[in-house]
Design a protein around this nucleic acid. Structure first.
Length: 932
RNA sequence: GCGAGGGUAGCCAAGCCAGGCCAACGGCGCCAGACUUAAGAUCUGGUCUUCAGUAGUUCAUGGGUUCGAAUCCCUUCCCUCGCACCA
C-alpha cells in the first residue's frame, strides 16, 4: 500500500478508467439528471477562474451520479463570432502584444503560433487544450458529445431553430444606430475599440430654424428650451454647406453632412457658405415665430451636431458666458436671457446664478463641463416649465422634453441625430468610429410583449440558485428589446433566408442544450439530410418519420434519447450572463419547445479574483488552470475552488491558501490508511458512528442545495474534528475500533465528488471493487444516531474545556479537580425554566413551585443563571437536559479521560453534600469546579 | 445615472431570509508549547478587553422597532456586477 500521496502518479491511471465510464446513455431504469454549462469560446488558455465554472457542475454531477441518477454532463465549444478573426489578423501582422499573450502567457509553441493566422486553427488548438485540461481536472464529461458550433450538422440545427423563430415573426428587419467603423465597414463592439470605450451614442433632436428658403438645424439634447432661445451660434471660421437633405434645403457643417449620410439620409451638397455669411443675420424660431439673430462663436464645433447651435443663456452656462463676453465688448446688449425653467435652489436665471456663484472667468474654465452637468441634472430631475412655455407650462422638464421631442419629430420636420458622446472613439484598425444606422439588419424581437409575457410566466417555474438573482432575471426580461442577431463577418451559420448574414454568437447558442442529447449520433448523419423536418420530428415529435431523408429507426432513436434527457435540470453560468445569454435561452426555449421541455434550473456563479485582483488575460493577471493542476494536483485545485466560497460568491485564488488544501487532502489520505487495520470495539465507537450519520445528512442536504462550500465543511472539517475527538477519547494504547473502516468507507464517498482522484485511489486501497464515482452515496441511518452518547460527550467536552480554561487563567500548581454536580432541585428548576414560554418572567413561574419557593434567594439566583445557561445551549440539548441527564454516571465513566486530559486527579461530589462555597454555583450540565 | 448584489474581528469568510443557541463556524496570518540536531512539516493551545470557567465593548454609518438585533425597518458612505452588435 502506498504511503504517500503523489497526485501526478495516481491521476493518469484513474483518468483512463473514467473517460469511458462517463459516457452516458439513456437508462430507463434510472432517473436522469442533465447538467450543463455555458460552453467556452476557446480563443485562449483557461485560467483558474474558468476552472470553477466547470468544477462546481462536475461536483454536482458526481454527487447525483452516486445518488443513483443517470447523469449527463456534456461539453462543446462555441467558436461562432468575430474575435478570433481579429486575433488571427493581429498575429499575421506580428502584433507584439498578441504574440506575447499567446507565446508567453498561453505558452503556445512557436511553430503552432505560425499557423494562427488561420482563425479555425486557433479555436481548434484551444478546444483541444480545453478538453485536455478538463480531463486532467477529472471532469466527468461525456466527451463523445463534443462538437463545435461551426460543424455542418450544428448549422443545420441552427437553421431549424430559426425556421421556427423566423416563422413566428420574431426575427425582423430594423434600423438601429450602431457604432461603426467606415474603414472596416462593420459595427464595432466595446472590445473592438482602441479608445473611447466609455463613449455612448447620444440622441440629439435637430430643431429646425427657418432661414430664408433654407432651414438651419440646431442639435440639442434639451428641445424644451426652445422657449428660451435668444440667438443662434455659428462659427465664423467654418465653411458650411448648403445641401438638400431628404429633399429639404438645409445649412449644416460638412462633417454633419457626412454623418447624416451614414444615418440613412440622402444628402446632396449644393454649394458652400462661409460662417461669416451667417453672422448677424436672423433666423425664425419655429415655435415662437420670433426672429433670432445668428451670433459668432468660435466654440461651436462643426464636428458636433449640425455645426450650428441654439443659444439658451438662461439655462446653459456656455451660452450665458459666450453672450456675456460679447456684451462686455458692448455688442448685442439688447439680448436678454429668457428663463423658462424654475428649479429649486437656483435663481431666476440658473445659468447666471451658477456661473457667478463659482466665479467663472471665461469659457475656457475647466469647471464648465461639470457645472453644465450639474445644472442639467438639477433641471431634469427637479425643474418645472414657466408660464412662457405655451401648452407645456407647468410640466416637469422630464415630461416636457418628451412631449416637445414628439411634437417636433411628428409635426415640425425634426429628425433625431445620433452622435458619439466623445469624438475620440477609435477602432482597433486605427480609424475613427461614427454612428451609423444599419437598415438591412436582422433583429430578434425580444421587445415583443407577448413573448415577454410568456417568459415572465415561465420564470417562476425555473429553480434559480441563488434565489436573489430572480429579481435580476425579471428586470432583464422587461428590459430586453430588439437584439441584432446577424453579422456580416465572423464564423458561424448563415441566415437561411438571407445568406449574406451570419447569426451572431449570442443568437446561435440559446437552445444547443437540446443538441447535446443527440450530438454524437447526429454527427454521423450527412448534413444535407438534416432538413428542418428531421429536427421537427426529433425535438417536437412532428411529422411523418417514414417519409424523411433520415431512416425511421434512427429518427426514433434520436427522438427517444432527446426525450430521455430533456428538459435539462440545471444550467451553470457566471452572473454576468444573466442580462443576455441566460435570459435569451429562456425566450428561445419558450418559443420553440412545449411546456414540459422548458429549462428547469439555473445556478449562477460569482466572479474569480487572483490575489484579490480581478483576473484578466489582457492585464496578465491570470493563473493558468493547467499550471495549477500540475503544481498542486487536480484534487487540490478542485477542493480549493469548491471550498473557498459558495458558487454564487466571488472567490479569491491565493497560492498560499491552496497549499494548505493540499495538506488537508494528504491528511485525509493518511488518516484513511492508518485506520485500515483497525479492529475490535471501543466505548466511544457509538459516538463516532452517531456523529457520522449527522455529517452524512448535512453534507447531502448542502449538496442538494448547491452549497458546495458548506458541504465540504461538513464532509471534511466536520469529519476530521469528529475523528480528532474520537482519538482523544480512546482508551490508553488503543488505535480505535473496527468501526473506523465503516466510517472511512463513508468518508471516502462523501469526499469523492470534490476530490475524485484521491477518493478513487483510496477506494481501491481500502479494498473496494469498482469505481467510487459510481458507488452508492452514503445514507444517514437514523437508528445509529445515539443522542444520549452525544449528550454525554458534549458534557465531557464542555467540562474539560472549562477546566482547561481555568487552569490557563490561574497558573497554579494544581493536582486535583472536584466536580460538584448540581442537586436535584436545580434539575427540577432547569426543566421548569426550559419549559417556560416566556423566559423573562421565569422567576414567577419558578416561585409558583412550592419546593423551590422554600429555597428563597438561592432559587432566584439559580433561575437567572439557568436562563443564561439555557440561552447558550442548543434547544435540542436543552430539552435533553430537561429530560434528565445522569451527570454523575457520565463523569464517573469519563474520569480517567479527564484525568489524562487535565493531568489532575478527579473527584466527583454531589453539590448538596459539600460545604465548599463554590459548590453552590453548580448547574445542570455545568458542574461547579474547584481546582487545587 | 439606472438595475441587481454586497459591506462581519489583522486578512479571507460563515451567520442575516425564519431576532435570543453569537465574542460570533471555518481557514490564513501571528504568538506560545510539543516533536526534531536544526529547519520544515505535523500536533496542541492562544489570538477584542478583562477574568477561576465571569463580565464589558463589538458585526460600514447614524437613527428606529423590540424585554432582546450582526440578524427586521429607515439615513448616509463605500465596494462589485450588468447597462446591449458581444465572449
Amino acid at each position: 500500500m502506498a504511503n504517500t500521496l503523489v497526485m501526478s502518479e495516481i491521476e493518469p491511471e484513474i483518468r483512463a478508467e473514467w473517460i469511458p465510464a462517463f459516457e452516458s446513455n439513456p437508462d430507463e431504469t434510472k432517473d436522469k439528471l442533465y447538467v450543463n454549462v455555458a460552453f467556452p469560446y476557446p480563443s485562449g488558455a483557461m485560467h483558474v477562474g474558468h476552472g470553477r465554472t466547470y468544477i462546481i457542475p462536475d461536483v454536482v454531477a458526481r454527487f447525483w451520479r452516486m445518488q443513483g441518477k443517470q447523469v449527463l454532463f456534456p461539453m462543446a465549444f462555441h467558436v461562432t463570432g468575430a474575435p478570433v478573426l481579429g486575433i488571427a489578423k493581429r498575429i499575421a501582422n506580428k502584433d507584439e502584444k498578441t504574440l506575447k499573450l499567446y507565446g508567453e502567457l498561453y505558452r503556445v509553441p512557436k511553430e503552432t503560433i505560425a499557423n494562427f493566422t488561420d482563425p479555425i486553427t486557433i479555436v481548434n488548438y484551444f478546444a483541444d487544450e480545453y478538453e485536455r485540461v478538463m480531463k486532467q481536472l477529472g471532469l466527468s464529461i461525456d466527451w463523445r458529445r463534443r462538437f463545435t458550433t461551426i460543424i455542418p450538422q450544428y448549422s443545420k440545427f441552427i437553421e431549424w431553430q430559426y425556421t421556427h423563430i423566423y416563422g413566428q415573426g420574431k426575427v425582423q428587419k430594423g434600423e438601429y444606430p450602431v457604432r461603426y467603423c467606415p474603414a472596416c465597414d462593420q459595427p464595432v463592439g466595446d472590445h473592438d475599440l482602441l479608445e473611447g470605450e466609455s463613449a455612448e451614442i447620444m440622441h440629439f433632436v435637430f430643431v429646425m430654424y427657418q432661414f430664408g428658403e433654407y432651414q438651419i438645424p440646431c442639435a440639442t439634447l434639451r428641445p424644451e428650451t426652445i422657449f428660451g432661445v435668444t440667438n443662434l451660434w455659428a462659427n465664423p471660421e467654418t465653411t458650411y454647406v448648403k445641401a438638400e437633405v431628404d429633399g429639404q434645403k438645409w445649412i449644416i457643417s460638412s462633417e454633419a453632412a457626412e454623418k447624416l449620410r451614414m444615418q440613412k439620409h440622402t444628402v446632396v451638397e449644393l454649394s458652400t457658405l462661409h460662417g461669416t455669411e451667417l453672422i448677424d443675420k436672423t433666423a425664425k424660431n419655429p415655435y415662437t415665430g420670433a426672429d433670432v439673430p445668428i451670433l459668432p462663436a468660435s466654440f461651436v464645433d462643426p464636428d458636433m451636431g449640425s455645426g450650428l447651435v441654439m443659444s439658451v443663456p438662461a439655462h446653459a452656462p456656455f451660452d450665458y458666458i459666450a453672450l456675456r463676453d460679447l456684451q462686455e465688448k458692448g455688442k448685442y446688449t439688447d439680448i436678454k436671457a429668457i428663463p423658462l425653467v424654475t428649479v429649486p435652489n437656483y435663481g431666476t436665471i440658473p445659468a447666471q446664478d451658477i456661473v457667478e456663484k463659482n466665479k467663472i472667468p471665461n469659457q475656457e474654465d475647466p469647471r464648465m463641463d461639470d457645472l453644465t452637468q450639474e445644472l442639467y441634472t438639477a433641471e431634469f430631475s427637479k425643474g418645472k416649465l414657466n408660464d412662457n412655455c405655451g401648452i407645456h407650462a407647468g410640466k416637469s422638464v422630464r415630461q416636457a422634453r418628451e412631449d416637445v421631442t414628439r411634437e417636433f419629430t411628428d409635426e415640425r420636420g425634426s429628425i433625431i441625430f445620433h452622435e458619439m458622446s466623445q469624438k475620440r472613439v477609435i477602432c482597433r484598425c486605427g480609424g475613427r468610429v461614427y454612428v451609423k444606422i444599419l437598415d438591412d439588419q436582422w433583429f430578434l424581437n425580444y421587445g415583443d410583449q407577448a413573448w415577454k409575457a410568456q417568459v415572465h410566466e415561465q420564470l417562476p417555474k425555473v429553480e434559480l440558485v441563488p434565489a436573489e438573482v430572480r429579481a435580476e432575471f425579471e428586470r432583464t426580461i422587461d428590459w430586453l428589446k430588439e437584439w441584432p442577431c446577424s453579422r456580416r463577418v465572423g464564423l458561424g451559420t448563415h441566415v437561411p433566408w438571407d445568406p449574406k448574414w451570419l447569426f451572431e454568437p449570442l443568437s446561435d447558442s440559446t437552445v444547443y442544450m437540446a443538441y447535446y442529447t443527440i450530438s454524437y449520433k447526429i454527427s454521423k448523419i450527412p448534413a444535407e439530410k438534416l432538413i428542418p423536418a428531421v429536427f421537427d420530428y426529433i425535438f417536437l415529435g412532428i411529422g411523418d418519420p417514414t417519409n424523411m431523408p433520415v431512416d425511421e429507426a434512427t429518427l426514433h432513436e434520436l427522438r427517444s434519447e432527446f426525450l430521455y434527457w430533456y428538459p435539462y435540470d440545471y444550467r451553470f453560468s457566471a452572473k454576468d450572463l444573466i442580462s443576455n445569454h441566460l435570459t435569451f435561452q429562456l425566450f428561445h426555449h419558450k418559443a420553440i419547445f412545449p411546456d414540459n421541455l422548458q429549462p428547469k434550473g439555473m445556478v449562477v456563479f460569482g466572479m474569480g479574483l487572483l490575489n484579490g485582483m480581478k483576473m484578466s488575460s489582457s492585464k496578465g493577471n491570470v493563473f493558468l488552470l493547467e499550471d495549477a493542476a500540475n503544481e498542486f494536483g487536480a484534487d487540490t485545485v478542485r477542493m480549493f475552488l469548491v471550498g473557498s466560497a459558495e458558487p454564487w460568491q466571488d472567490f479569491d485564488w491565493r497560492n498560499e491558501l491552496v497549499l494548505s488544501v493540499k495538506k488537508q487532502i494528504e491528511r485525509m489520505w493518511q488518516i484513511v490508511l492508518d485506520s485500515s487495520d483497525a479492529s475490535g470495539t471501543t466505548p466511544i465507537d457509538a459516538w463516532l458512528v452517531s456523529r457520522m450519520q449527522q455529517r452524512i445528512a448535512a453534507t447531502t442536504k448542502c449538496l442538494c442545495a448547491f452549497q458546495t462550500r458548506q458541504a465540504l465543511q461538513e464532509a471534511y472539517n466536520g469529519v476530521v474534528s469528529d475523528l480528532a475527538w474520537y482519538r482523544r477519547r480512546l482508551p490508553e494504547g488503543s488505535s480505535g475500533g473496527a468501526v473506523q473502516k465503516e466510517i472511512m468507507s463513508e468518508w471516502i464517498r462523501l469526499m469523492a465528488p470534490v476530490i475524485p482522484y484521491t477518493a478513487e485511489k483510496l477506494w481501491k486501497e481500502t479494498g473496494h471493487e469498482g469505481l467510487v464515482s459510481f458507488a452508492a452515496w452514503p445514507v444517514a441511518d437514523e437508528s445509529k444516531i445515539n443522542k444520549s452518547v452525544e449528550i454525554s460527550e458534549s458534557l465531557i467536552q464542555r467540562t474539560v474545556e472549562d477546566i482547561q480554561s481555568i487552569l490557563k487563567l490561574v497558573q497554579i500548581e494544581a493536582s486535583n479537580v472536584t466536580l460538584f454536580i448540581a442537586p436535584q432541585w436545580k434539575r427540577h428548576l432547569f426543566s421548569i425554566v426550559a419549559g417556560a414560554e416566556d423566559k423573562r418572567n421565569v422567576i414567577k413561574t419558578v416561585m409558583a413551585d412550592e419546593s423551590l419557593r422554600a429555597k428563597g434567594k438561592e432559587a432566584t439566583d439559580a433561575s437567572l443563571q439557568t436562563v443564561k445557561l439555557i440561552h447558550s445551549l442548543s434547544p435540542e440539548l436543552v430539552s435533553a437536559i430537561a429530560d434528565g441527564v445522569d451527570e454523575e454516571a457520565i463523569f464517573k465513566a469519563a474520569s480517567a479521560f479527564i484525568e489524562k486530559e487535565c493531568r489532575l486527579s478527579v473527584e466527583i461530589v454531589s453539590a448538596e453534600e459539600s460545604t465548599h462555597p463554590k459548590a453552590k454555583s453548580a448547574l445542570p450540565f455545568k458542574p461547579a469546579l474547584v481546582i487545587e
